[in-house]
Simulated scan of single mutants.
Amino acid sequence: MNMITAFQSLTWIDGLLVAAYLGVWLGLSWLIEHPSQSRPSVTVLMSEYRRQWMQVMVTREPRIFDAQVMMSLRQGTSFFASTCLLALGGLLALIGNVDPLRGLAEGIGQGDAPAVVLQLKLTLVLVLLGNAFLKFVWANRVFGYCSVMMGAVPNDPVDPRTAPLARKAAELNIRAAMNFNRGLRAMYFALGAVAWLVGPVGLGLALVVTTWLVWSREFASLPRAIVLADTDT
């Protein structure tokens, strides 16, 4: 069966749900990074703390603590990038040979699904995981830029170069964190996309659950409440 026949074997509901899945993934990312002023996301709230961090760093001597935090951030991005790379390798191997999925497909009522249809459904997961990997790699690199910029900040707080370089370091830190968070969201949606193997109902349920998980962590989580809490109380 060729790819055209595979597309024909899927229903219009499948196509609609895949479009909605990708649209919600991209739209939710935009909403998280551009929220209303009355209800900021955790990502936006933490961006301000990253700017404050660089302001405090200027007066901290020595800056060992700042170096350790940056090392921890880069290790986190490296870990997730490595995890994505392993997952991509396994997924590519599975797409090349979907026979191991036959037992699972039969158990969920998809035993008559052609191999190319299963491969097509796994491709959605592959696209999301590939995006996550690229975001993590770029985040790691930008965190590296930030580390170099932090190292260029003079030790003298009154040096005219200190404040501008600290601001640049803060903005680089924020951009790296944005890409790291994009990678995490792509991983959430990649995990949810596996449910398409069950059928359009599975993908629809995964869309609702994944959207709720990502949205609640940014706009209705306990960490967000802690960040917003008045530090004077």
Rank of each mutant, 00 (worst) to 15 (best):
G111E: 09
P223T: 06
V117H: 00
H34C: 04
T231G: 13
L129C: 05
L17P: 01
V125H: 02
T11P: 04
R217T: 10
Q119H: 08
L129M: 13
V24Y: 00
R50T: 13
G151A: 03
R224E: 03
V117C: 04
G90N: 11
L124R: 01
F65Q: 09
G199C: 09
A225V: 08
L134P: 02
T210H: 01
Q37H: 15
S41P: 06
L26S: 05
W12S: 08
P200S: 15
L207G: 03
M71D: 05
Q119P: 05
R39C: 10
F143D: 02
W30Y: 14
R51F: 11
Y145P: 06
F133L: 15
A190Y: 05
R217V: 11
V158Y: 14
A115K: 01
K135Y: 15
Q119A: 12
R60G: 00
L126A: 11
V127H: 08
W12Q: 06
N173Y: 07
N179Q: 13
A195R: 00
V98Q: 02
L104P: 04
T162N: 09
R167G: 03
S38Q: 14
V198S: 09
S41Y: 08
H34S: 07
A190H: 02
A229K: 11
L94C: 05
A81E: 04
R39Q: 14
E33Q: 13
F7T: 04
Y188S: 06
Y188K: 10
D232A: 15
F80E: 02
R50W: 10
V69E: 06
G183H: 05
A113T: 14
F7S: 05
M70H: 09
I108A: 06
L184E: 03
R39P: 05
G144Y: 02
L73I: 04
D232E: 15
A132P: 05
A115H: 01
T231C: 12
V214A: 03
G76A: 13
T83C: 12
P164I: 09
S47T: 08
L222K: 12
R63T: 01
V214L: 06
A6E: 02
D156Y: 06
H34A: 09
A193I: 07
L124C: 04
D232W: 13
E218T: 07
I4N: 04
G151W: 05
L165T: 07
V214K: 02
A176Q: 03
G96L: 10
G109L: 11
S38H: 15
R175D: 10
D159R: 12
Y188I: 12
P157A: 07
P62H: 12
Q119W: 07
K168S: 12
V18S: 04
M3R: 09
Y21S: 08
T231D: 11
V44A: 01
A152F: 08
L172E: 08
I32V: 10
R63W: 13
R167Y: 09
V201C: 00
